[in-house]
């Protein structure tokens, strides 16, 4: 009988071990929030305090920090179907991702610590109407109600008098933007417009892309650098049928 009991022990333990392994694997799977789908140049990933180079197709875990080098950019595809493209000299942290049983996003929060981020977000409205995708910068919160938008953070912006600023430009859908410290409420930015959040101040009213943003005047980021004399063609010569012209000289 003793022999039999000894033999039964492992038989009872095996299912427990298997269940424990499955639980462990599931727990690990929940920390993988996406993967690198595109990498140009070089980037670093910081995970649990250790920094290593980013490679194509590598998984991205919750709380990973991604930093791109100069002339580099990368794209992360999250498990909720959203795509995040990080421009050069930028740092992104995945702070939270909760996906429901049916695979629908319940909440995703990412942080842009510096640089520029382009996000293509799949349907971002929860049943209650609240945004389920949020981008935080050091001084602003962009609650996403739409699908495609740009966020950038600069430690010194000319629009804000060389103070830190966040810029949110919307290409499609709508994005609610507020200061991270809650100053002055928020604004809702429509497609084709952008807003700037200066440190410690409420968001500026939205203005047209390229005119009202951090890149104002540079013509950068699908912007409009503003029509200028000469830009729209040099002015026509002032020569309304003049004698000087008729003689061959103006």
């Amino acid at each position: 009988m003793k022999i039999i009991k000894i033999c039964r022990f492992p038989i009872r333990v095996v299912p427990l071990v298997l269940v424990a392994m499955l639980l462990s694997a599931a727990a690990h799977a929940q920390t993988v929030v996406g993967s690198i789908t595109e990498l140009t140049g070089s980037a670093q990933i910081t995970r649990a305090g250790a920094t290593s180079p980013v490679t194509s197709a590598m998984p991205v875990d919750l709380h990973d920090s991604l930093t791109t080098a100069a002339d580099s950019h990368l794209t992360v595809r999250l498990n909720d179907g959203s795509t995040l493209s990080l421009s050069e000299m930028s740092t992104l942290v995945i702070n939270e991702q909760v996906i429901g049983p049916s695979g629908v996003r319940q909440s995703t929060k990412v942080g842009l610590l510096t640089g520029r981020l382009y996000a293509a977000v799949s349907s971002a409205i929860s049943g209650s109407g609240a945004p389920t995708f949020q981008v935080n910068t050091p001084n602003a919160i962009a609650g996403v109600r739409g699908t495609r938008f740009n966020v950038s953070y600069a430690s010194a912006s000319p629009v804000c008098g060389d103070r830190p600023s966040s810029d949110v430009g919307v290409l499609d859908g709508e994005v609610g933007v507020s200061n991270a410290n809650g100053a002055g409420g928020g604004v809702l930015v429509s497609p084709g417009y952008e807003t700037v959040v200066c440190a410690g101040e409420p968001p500026l009213p939205p203005g047209p892309l390229g005119l009202a943003g951090d890149g104002t005047g540079s013509g950068a980021a699908r912007g409009y650098s503003g029509a200028q004399p000469g830009a729209g063609g040099a002015p026509p010569p002032a020569c309304p049928v003049c004698p000087a012209c008729s003689s061959g000289k103006m």
Partner: peptide, 28 residues
């Protein structure tokens, strides 16, 4: 040439441009 934009943080910013050229040959 002078150009500027006013009220850029609004839905309808205003652009103002002016350009002045003097021709020293025909004095126009």
């Amino acid at each position: 040439d002078f150009s500027t934009w006013l009220f850029v943080h609004s839905y309808h910013p205003i652009s103002f441009m002016t350009s002045t050229v003097h021709n020293f040959q025909n004095s126009v």
